[in-house]
Design a protein around this nucleic acid. Structure first.
Lengths: 156, 156
DNA sequence: ACCTGTTCTTTCAAATCTGAACAACTTCGG
DNA sequence: CCGAAGTTGTTCAGATTTGAAAGAACAGGT
């Protein structure tokens, strides 16, 4: 069973995951935008910066965490800078690099949006799951991720 | 525990699902593009048409199945039409509508790409899962989807 | 110090996606 | 049968995303 086809069960699982996670993200992004002037990308940038030491991150590190192509992050940070949510600073120890820095405005926007967003996540996702489901999902997707990054390293 | 925060377990599950499924899709799309001249969107259009009776679908139905905004589907079908993968035909019983129709070229492209794509899905996703995982994922995401569409109906 | 190869980020043009506005129908109630 | 209201798909302009190319700076060996 390691050939070029999938069994009905396998196909069903694949499609269910892809389709529902897509619809889930769309729904949650809609909720977020209605409540806050932030896209999910904006929100995720703010979260990553808020969690980072010094509330700042190198562009490259942030891109990796967000799974963004470099040029996409440049653009994303550009629009957020215009809105005052983040600042860009040259990196002290590496003159090629720059850092995205969370501003007070950005932090306030995150704090204002977080409760509603997390409520949305709970309503559309968490509420459907019991503890066993949660554990299963975490285990499964963590494992998939490990395999993916191992495969990526193999290619490089 | 139904307020505006998530427990560490809940947050971990949410992040794992969102991040890994994103990386998974990117990886699988990369595989597909390297092997076939098709994007994942192209591929999914071909699959939907191939599975549809008469190998044709109303634009609206296809958009729903693919979770595409209408104007996006118009554009998508436009590019595929240029490449000869699909045709557009006016809908017989509703003169507002049009149908996307799979061509022989499109069907051949799908058949050529499918084995490699399914192999990629197996390699990156299915291989990490046992039968219980598969069943759990299908159950969980199917349930989420049902809830989402129920919520959507409630809004309309 | 001087190459050589690599990494970091941005720039640019082209491709794609979104949302609002539209035109062409269809449907339904009177 | 008429007209208001709803549907369907497209168009358009603007926003976002991609990928290739380039500029600047680092790192390691010589």
């Amino acid at each position: 069973m390691s050939d070029e086809k999938l069994s009905p069960e396998e196909l069903a699982a694949w499609r269910a995951v892809v389709e529902s996670s897509q619809r889930l993200l769309i729904t949650i992004e809609d909720d977020l935008r209605k409540a806050s002037d932030l896209t999910l990308a904006d929100y995720n940038v703010l979260v990553q910066l808020a969690e980072a030491p010094g509330r700042r991150l190198r562009m490259g590190d942030l891109a990796t965490k967000l799974i963004f192509a470099p040029s996409r992050l440049t653009y994303q940070i550009g629009t957020m800078e215009k809105r005052g949510l983040v600042t860009r600073e040259p990196c002290p120890d590496d003159r090629r690099g720059s850092e995205a820095v969370l501003t007070e405005v950005g932090l306030a926007a995150l704090r204002a949006a977080a409760p509603g967003h997390l409520g949305s996540v709970r309503r559309h996702f968490i509420e459907d799951l019991d503890a066993a489901d949660l554990a299963a999902l975490t285990k499964i997707f963590t494992r998939i991720d490990e395999r993916l990054s191992a495969a990526r390293d193999r290619v490089r």
